[in-house]
């Protein structure tokens, strides 16, 4: 499409938000109230189906694309350290996204209501929170964030129908950081990324791929609910 980069970003995010809301309405609302595991399995299944459908599209379904960005291809030298401007932009935008999401969940009425709904759906009903509408917004928001992440990732990995598998890396990151903790998942991501890079450099071939899981094991042995994990003490 001949759209400029920023318009393209907005378009991708907005259309993914709609896809997320439609997915909620059609696939996830019927299992409202079921255990989280059911929902997770359904979304994974839905992911496979959508990927399969996209790959079947003749012409571009199986191709790999490069995404041109307005950030220069140049590099930045700080003493001995060499950094690609491209990557710096990605890091900067990720940080900005995290910050905006943090503000949203911490301070806005609807952001807090989203947390409330995910923590205790029944109580959310009692408070007069329109649970279904909020759930739909949650799925819309997560799809939009995924779209943004995909755009950030595109200059690094190229665009193809299986790029979503990088999301599997996010899982150990979230476990290490502690589920439900935003700072936790950022720290978790940094730890996993660093360990992988170091393992790839210093250890024999193959260790890089298991490094993330070794980190998960070790962390869970020491902090069973992750580094920043919230230990919910259920009081009777």
């Amino acid at each position: 499409m001949g759209l400029p980069y920023w318009a393209m970003i907005l378009f991708a995010i907005a259309s993914m938000a709609i896809v997320g809301m439609v997915a909620e309405r059609i696939v996830l609302r019927p299992v409202l109230g079921y255990p989280a595991f059911t929902v997770v399995m359904i979304t994974i299944g839905l992911g496979y189906v959508l990927r399969g459908v996209v790959t079947m599209v003749p012409g571009w379904g199986t191709e790999t694309y490069a995404l041109r960005t307005p950030f220069s291809e140049g590099i930045l030298k700080l003493g001995d350290v060499v950094l690609a401007v491209q990557q710096l932009a990605v890091i900067g935008m990720t940080a900005l996204l995290c910050f905006v999401l943090y503000l949203f969940f911490r301070f806005s009425r609807i952001g807090i209501a989203m947390q409330a709904t995910s923590q205790n759906q029944l109580a959310a009903y009692y408070m007069g929170i329109p649970v279904r509408r909020v759930n739909m917004m949650i799925w819309g928001l997560s799809a939009a964030v995924a779209a943004f992440a995909g755009i950030l990732l595109a200059p690094v990995t190229f665009v193809h129908s299986n790029m979503g598998f990088i999301g599997l890396k996010a899982f150990p990151a979230a476990v290490v950081g502690g589920f439900g903790s935003v700072p936790g998942s950022i720290v978790g991501g940094l730890i996993i990324g660093l360990v992988e890079a170091l393992a790839g450099f210093y250890l024999p071939e193959g260790f890089k791929d298991v490094a993330a899981y070794v980190v998960v094991l070790v962390v869970l042995l020491v902090w069973p609910s992750g580094i920043f994990g919230e230990t919910v003490r259920k009081k009777v």
Partner: peptide, 25 residues
């Protein structure tokens, strides 16, 4: 408004955020 059996607070929200949710409407 309803004070449910077993309290049903939002465990990971702060006390103040819980109160804000009470005023959601």
């Amino acid at each position: 408004s309803h004070v449910p059996e077993g309290r049903e607070v939002f465990p990971l929200l702060t006390v103040e955020e819980n109160l804000r949710m009470g005023a959601y409407t």
